[in-house]
């Protein structure tokens, strides 16, 4: 409870700063901070983000505090007399160079440690090839025949046509739902091998703490392990402008128990003949 309130503080502070001290009512107003996510990495990123945020708040309080003090008391209308001898002070200038360096180093250390940890893509239990195309994703479970194209769901696609007349709120998960979800097991280290067949895309699911560019001709790696107690559906979007329908190529991941996953893979393998479809197939085999 206490933690949750703390997490909302940046937004609340910011609200006050923006002059609108309104209380959160509808759900949209609550969306002011990064999700904690469901992987070890995403939670650590969240912690780093909050640490950096509070350091910034601290710096802002000190700098703005001095400034506001000065704006109130050192004004001509109060009869303030300028101290024209105050032109520099080597001592003060050294202090305000060294202190920021110390603060920065203390932020850089945990960031560097986490960075190294995130970029460790060795020893995965499952590898999935992710191929971006204009405009959707093609997934292939390495070592199986299971592969499929994942595109914006039909209901969202109908509603997103210009002047469709369909209200976005009437569509479940408008723009964040797909026809075929990426299914993964919880508790296992999953490595994504990410590429593209046309332009640069970027595969991003905030709750997994993964964002990686999909670049034609190159294979990028990213990995994640979803906490065993966090099965569920996690939604994300392409994060690199990739043309007209960039807004319409979401990513949906369904995390299930390893047993359910094994059953799903077996069932998909059985009907693998219909699996490979769509424009991505040709390019994807090239990688």
């Amino acid at each position: 409870m206490k933690r949750a309130t703390l997490g909302k503080l940046p937004g609340i502070l910011a609200l006050a700063a923006a002059g609108g001290a309104r209380r959160a009512s509808a759900s949209g107003w609550d969306l002011i901070n990064m999700p904690r996510g469901v992987t070890n990495v995403s939670t650590r990123i969240y912690a780093l983000h909050m640490m950096a945020f509070w350091v910034c708040v601290g710096i802002a309080v000190v700098v703005f505090g001095v400034m506001i003090w000065s704006l109130i008391f050192h004004r001509r209308s109060r009869g303030a007399v300028p101290d024209v001898t105050m032109t520099h002070s080597t001592k003060v200038e050294i202090v305000w160079t060294i202190v920021p360096v110390v603060i920065l180093v203390s932020m850089a250390l945990p960031a560097a440690r986490l960075l190294v940890r995130i970029n460790n893509n060795t020893d995965p239990q499952l590898s999935i090839r992710v191929t971006g195309f204009q405009w959707g994703w093609y997934y292939h479970y390495v070592g199986t025949h299971v592969s499929f194209v994942s595109k914006l769901s039909a209901s969202s696609n109908a509603a997103r046509q210009l002047d469709s007349g369909i209200s976005p709120t009437s569509v479940p998960h408008y723009l964040l739902s797909v026809d075929h979800k990426l299914v993964v097991p919880v508790g296992e280290k999953i490595r994504l091998l990410i590429t593209s067949v046309d332009v640069i895309h970027s595969w991003w699911v905030p709750d997994l703490g993964v964002k990686k560019a999909a670049i034609p001709g190159f294979i990028n790696q990213a990995s994640f392990t979803i906490a065993p107690n966090k099965p569920g559906v996690y939604r994300g979007q392409c994060a690199e402008l990739c043309g007209r329908d960039h807004a319409f190529m979401p990513i949906v991941v369904r995390a299930v128990s390893p047993a359910q996953f094994a059953a799903w893979i077996a069932q998909r393998s059985a009907r693998q003949t219909e699996a490979v479809t769509g424009p991505a197939a040709a390019g994807a085999t090239r990688t």
């Binding site: 000065s70 050192h74 105050m86």
Partner: peptide, 10 residues
């Protein structure tokens, strides 16, 4: 900020 400090601002 130090320039504003102990100035006579308008």
């Amino acid at each position: 900020v130090a320039t504003m400090w102990r100035g006579s601002m308008s």
